[in-house]
Every structure is written in structure tokens, then in C-alpha cells.
């Protein structure tokens, strides 16, 4: 699972560098995120610009991360394509993880 991380204020921007966030990638994505949480990160922006496909396993990885973070944690989603955004909406995950067009938009909305 290829990701890139960058701190922006109190957020850690996690850029997913994979096209597909499906069953085969979900476990390693979840584990990468768990390590970041263990390092003390509590607020994330997931940049999904490169992702063209997400399925329930991919959503599951994000959901498991949210559960690990607990109530004080925060996860914002940026750059979701129409297909990816549809998946968030179909499962109402957009109500849990707010969707933003870009990372900048996500960060400025939360300042």
C-alpha cells in the first residue's frame, strides 16, 4: 500500500497513491493508518485524488481507522472522484467523513 504523509497544522494529510482501494489493499491500508495513530496522529485528511475505485473493504479500512481513533479523532476526505464519492454517499459514509474537493478546501474549512 503506497501512501505519502505530510503534516499540515494539526492534520496529517495522507495521500493514497494507489488507484484501487479494494479488498487486496484494504488490510495494508488499515495497518498503515493504525501505525500513524500509534505515532500520535489524531486528525487526518485522506487525499483520494489518485483513487479511481473503492469498495466496501476500502471503506471498511477507513471505518476501522475511525473506530481506532475514537470520539476525539477526525477524518476528512479530499479529492474523491465521482465514482468514489458515489460509494461514500451510497453507504452514507459521507455523513461520517465529510467530503471536500481538495485538501486545501478540507484544511481551510476546519481552521
Amino acid at each position: 500500500m503506497k501512501i505519502r504523509t505530510e503534516s499540515k497544522g494539526r492534520y496529517l494529510v495522507v495521500t493514497v497513491l494507489e488507484e484501487r482501494l479494494g479488498a487486496d489493499r484494504a488490510v495494508s491500508f488499515k495497518e498503515s493508518l493504525a501505525r500513524l495513530i500509534d505515532q500520535g496522529h489524531g486528525a487526518f485528511v485522506f487525499d483520494l485524488t489518485a483513487v479511481t475505485f473503492i469498495d466496501s473493504s476500502g471503506l471498511g479500512a477507513i471505518l476501522a481507522t475511525a473506530k481506532r481513533l475514537g470520539r476525539s479523532g477526525e477524518i476528512l476526505i479530499a479529492g474523491a472522484s465521482e465514482t468514489v464519492g458515489t460509494m461514500f454517499k451510497l453507504t452514507r459514509m459521507d455523513r461520517i467523513f465529510p467530503l471536500f474537493l481538495t485538501v486545501e478546501e478540507a484544511l481551510s474549512a476546519r481552521v
Partner: peptide, 27 residues
């Protein structure tokens, strides 16, 4: 959280029905 069902009318038209919903067991 399941894909929208398709309702195929006897007359030949088709329409997506339903809306959105949380998956079961997620939250």
C-alpha cells in the same frame, strides 16, 4: 449501503429505486 435496485416496469421502462443507507454492522 447496497446498490440501488432496478425496477423494470411491465411496460418496458426501468428506474433505479431506493436511496442510500448505512451498511449493517458498521456504526
Amino acid at each position: 449501503g447496497h446498490p440501488n435496485p432496478i425496477l423494470s416496469r411491465a411496460g418496458g421502462s426501468t428506474v433505479l429505486i431506493g436511496g442510500t443507507g448505512f451498511p449493517v454492522g458498521a456504526l
